[in-house]
C-alpha cells in the first residue's frame, strides 16, 4: 500500500461524512420565475439530445462591438424634425387616444399618418429610443415604428437593396403583409401592414403600404424628444 492510499481513503470518508453539509452550500436550483421552462405532468419532459454535431463549422461570431445597438451615423437631424413638428402643431386631433406619457418618454420624433381613422384608436409603446404605434383598419393591422438604434452588418455582407431611393425607402413583402422601411431626420422608420387573410389584395401588393407611408408626415415630439433637440419641455 503506497503512502497516499490512506490519505485517499480518509478523503473519501471525509467526503461521505460531510456530504450533507456540502449539499447545504450548493447553489439553490434555479427559481421558477415567470415563464420558466419547466415541464409539467401533462407535458412531455424535455429530452436532451446528445447526438454529435453533423458538422463542425467555423467559430460563430459575436456581433462587432457596437454592432448591437448603435445610433445612426450623423445622429438625428433635429432642425428638420422640429420644423416638421411645428408644421404639425395644428393636427392635435391626430393624437386621438394615444398615451401622452408614452409620447413624452419617446426620445425620437414620432411620425404619424395624416389620417384620423388610423390614429384615432392607435396604441403607442415607447422604449425611449424606439417606439411602436399599433393601429387597426378593417381586416388590416398597421404598425409604425421609429428608432435610432441599429445593428451593424459585417462589411462582407452587403444588403441587396438600392441606396438611391428617396429616404432609402424599401418595401419588403412579408408572410402576412408589406413592410416599408425608410430614413427621415436620420431616424429609421417603418410602416407595416398585416392582413387577417393572407390572400387579401391589400397585402399582396404594396399599394396600401405605400399610401400610408406617403401620408406618414406628421411629426410629434414629446418631452424627451424636445429635450434631446435642445428645446423646452413643452411648446
Amino acid at each position: 500500500m503506497g503512502p497516499w492510499r490512506p490519505i485517499a481513503l480518509s478523503g473519501l470518508l471525509f467526503a461521505v461524512l460531510t456530504l450533507p453539509a456540502a449539499s447545504q452550500t450548493a447553489p439553490p436550483s434555479p427559481a421558477s420565475g415567470p415563464g420558466t421552462a419547466r415541464p409539467t405532468a401533462d407535458q412531455p419532459r424535455f429530452q436532451a439530445q446528445t447526438a454529435p454535431r453533423v458538422t463542425r463549422p467555423p467559430p460563430q461570431r459575436q456581433p462587432e462591438p457596437g454592432a448591437q445597438g448603435g445610433a445612426p451615423q450623423g445622429g438625428i437631424d433635429w432642425k428638420s424634425a422640429v420644423t416638421g413638428a411645428r408644421r404639425s402643431e395644428g393636427d392635435q386631433a391626430l393624437l386621438g387616444k394615444i398615451d401622452r406619457d408614452a409620447i413624452d418618454r419617446t426620445a425620437v420624433p414620432i411620425l404619424l399618418p395624416a389620417d384620423p381613422a388610423l390614429t384615432g384608436n392607435a396604441r403607442l409603446y415607447s422604449f425611449g429610443d424606439y417606439y411602436s404605434l399599433t393601429a387597426d383598419l378593417s381586416g388590416v393591422g398597421v404598425s409604425l415604428t421609429g428608432t435610432t438604434t441599429t445593428v451593424t452588418l459585417p462589411a462582407q455582407s452587403p444588403l441587396k437593396m438600392s441606396a438611391d431611393a428617396p429616404e432609402q425607402l424599401v418595401i419588403q413583402r412579408t408572410v402576412d403583409g408589406q413592410l416599408a422601411s425608410f430614413v427621415r431626420f436620420g431616424v429609421l422608420y417603418t410602416v407595416e401592414v398585416r392582413c387577417d387573410d393572407p390572400k387579401d389584395v391589400r397585402c399582396r401588393n404594396d399599394g396600401l403600404v405605400r399610401q400610408i407611408q406617403s401620408q406618414t408626415n406628421r411629426v410629434v415630439m414629446g418631452q424627451a424628444a424636445r429635450q434631446a433637440a435642445g428645446l423646452g419641455a413643452r411648446p
Binding site: P72, V151, L159, A163, Q168, V170, Q172, L179, L188
Partner: peptide, 29 residues
C-alpha cells in the same frame, strides 16, 4: 412556428453605399 428576428440594420448596399433598413436577420444561430 415561423420565427422571425428583425431589427434596424446599418450596412452597405451592393454598390457600396451606406444604408439603413429595418429588416430580417437570420435567427438560426
Amino acid at each position: 412556428m415561423h420565427f422571425e428576428l428583425r431589427a434596424g440594420v446599418a450596412g452597405v448596399s451592393t454598390d457600396g453605399k451606406p444604408v439603413m433598413v429595418h429588416t430580417f436577420l437570420p435567427p438560426y444561430l
